[in-house]
Every structure is written in C-alpha cells, then in structure tokens.
C-alpha cells in the first residue's frame, strides 16, 4: 500500500510533463527539447524557491522557463520555418548545459519542500484514500490536470479545434481557426506544464539540485506521450506504469539483484511493443468492427505534427 502511494508521488513530475507534451503535439508542435527544458526548469524552480524562500515563485519560475523554451520552438517553426526536430534537439543540449552552469552554486543543499497534506474525508476511504489522498497539493493538482486536459480535448469545442490544428491545419484554417496563433498558445501552455513538472521534481520528489538532476526523465516522457496515444489519461497511465516498474525494481533489488537491473529498462521495449500494436492491422480490424473501442485504443499521431503551416 505504501509502495503504491510512493508510486503515485514519484510519477507526478512525469504526469505534468507528458500532459504538457501531449497538448503541444496535439497542436502539431513537437517539443523535442523536453529532456533539457525539464532539467533547466527543475534547476530554476529549486534555485528561485531557495533564494526567495517561496515555493510558489519556484513553480512560477519553472513554468516560465518551460514556456520560453517551448515558445522558442514554436517561433522558429512558425516564423522562421525551421525544422522543429532540429531546433528542439539543439535546445535540449543548450538547456542541459545551462542547467549545469547556472545551478552550480546550489548543488546538494537543502531547500524548501512541498509539504504533505492529506485531504480530509477522502483520505479515510478504505484502500483508495491512503494511496491517492495522502499526498501533497501538487499531486492533487496533477489529477485535476489529467482529467481537465482530457475533458478539454475531447469534450469541448475549443478542444476539438486544438485537435484539428494538429491534424489538418489547412482544413482548420478553411473553417476560420487561426492555426498559428493556437499553435503558439498550446505549445506555450504545454511548455509551462513541462516546466511545472521539472520544478515539482526538484521541489517535491527528489529535493534539491545536483548535476543533471532529472537525467533521462524527458526522454522517457517523450516515449510515454507516444505510449499514451496522444491522450492525456492514457499518457498519465503510462507515467504511472513507468514509475511502477521503477518501484518494483527497487523492491526487488534485495531478493533478486539480477532481475532488478533489467526492470527499469522494460518501459522502453514496452513503448515499441505498444507502437507495434497501435499500428497493427489486427487492431485496425478490431476497431473497424467495434467503433466504440476506437476511443480506447486509437493512438494515431496528429498527422501534421512537426510541419509548418502557411496560408499562402
């Protein structure tokens, strides 16, 4: 029980990041800098929170860093017509180096932490309460974010527009959607969520800052977005699954030292397997026959992802 509580807790930064990236990619912009922007925002979040002694300012700093990096990618794609993958990759490297350079003075020191806070009444629900509702505020916000993002995307009018922009921008344009404006907005929003994810790592999960503090978290998050089929709830499940495998690895360290080495690598072949299933004829036939299953299994990438849209 305690382990499941920890699992939810440790997965939370990843949940913010995958939902943020999902929103950005749904709008057609792939933010490949995530490994770097997560790290830089984790550093910025901790340093600012430490210096100002304000957690709120720390998270704000993380969000701003994440948003700026994302907007840089959006700008270079929309305005400068550069390749999103190339720009994202360069920014990843730049952000990683910047985080080392700027965070140098704050390595391995204690700082402010998000305090645990259980939700009254809900925490008393048997089984569920201790797992989900004896956490901190950040975790509760992540629950709301996942369901909110899902609801917005699939149940609201602007959410449908968001999907359209990443799917077929010229068709969205012909219906009167301002494609590039929305791409700026959603990429910036997604980047801010990635930044909050970074800050929540250094202010809640693994407190403080050290050299490449969030190493590999961003790459994993990118894979989980694909695993999640560009749907927030499934992406969050992917984040929990990954955290679960990591927790299992830690638990098995003692009884089975050999197997424990392998477990943390499982998410990666699992992503590949998921992609194989998503694109299989078998699944396509199944969803042809039972259209309701499409909502669960469909995992098509937004068609126009990574492309530039021009009206003339």
């Amino acid at each position: 029980m305690n382990e499941l509580n920890t699992l939810i807790f440790t997965a939370t930064p990843l949940v913010f990041a995958v939902v943020g990236e999902t929103i950005s990619e749904k709008a057609g912009v792939i933010n490949l800098s995530m490994e770097g922007s997560l790290m830089l925002s984790a550093m910025a979040g901790f340093v600012i929170a430490f210096e100002t002694n304000s957690l709120l300012l720390g998270f704000l700093a993380g969000a701003i860093v994440g948003m700026l990096v994302a907007l840089l990618i959006a700008f270079s794609s929309i305005r400068l017509k550069l390749n999103q993958v190339a720009v994202g990759f360069v920014l990843f490297q730049l952000c990683v180096d910047l985080s080392t350079f700027l965070g140098n003075g704050h390595v391995r020191i204690a700082g402010p932490t998000v305090q645990a806070w259980s939700i009254p009444l809900l925490k008393d629900i048997p089984v569920i309460g201790p797992i989900f509702f004896e956490q901190n505020l950040l975790v509760y916000v992540s629950y709301l974010l996942v369901f909110g993002a899902w609801w917005y995307m699939f149940r609201t009018r602007p959410g449908l527009g968001l999907q359209g922009v990443g799917e077929r921008p010229e068709a969205a344009h012909s219906r009167g959607i301002q494609v590039n404006r929305l791409r700026y907005i959603y990429t910036g929003l997604g980047g801010a969520l990635i930044g909050i994810g970074g800050a929540s790592y250094s202010l809640s999960v693994k407190i403080g800052w050290s050299f490449q503090h969030t190493r590999n978290l961003g790459w994993i998050a990118l894979a989980i977005v694909i695993f999640g089929g560009w749907q927030p709830i499934r992406a969050a499940m992917g984040a929990y699954l990954f955290a679960g495998l990591l927790t299992a690895a830690q638990l098995l360290q003692e009884p089975l030292p050999d197997l424990a080495q392998v477990l943390p690598t499982i998410p990666f072949p699992l992503m590949i397997l998921t992609l194989v299933v998503i694109y299989s004829d078998w699944l396509r036939r199944l969803t042809d026959r039972f259209p309701t299953l499409r909502a669960v299994f469909a995992g098509e990438p937004p068609t126009a992802i990574g492309t530039v849209f021009e009206t003339d």
Partner: peptide
Amino acid sequence: MLHQDPLVFLPFSVIDNFLLQSPGGLRL
C-alpha cells in the same frame, strides 16, 4: 466553399467533423 479535395479530418468521427469550429458554448 467545398474544396476539390474535401477539407475534412480523416481520423475524426463524422459528427466531430461536423462540429469542428461550429458556433456554440464551451461544451460539445
């Protein structure tokens, strides 16, 4: 305008295509 290659969104359902960018409130 009906474009030569109808500008519809292939992965979406027919009703979602019908509704995309239609006037109305937040909730679909």
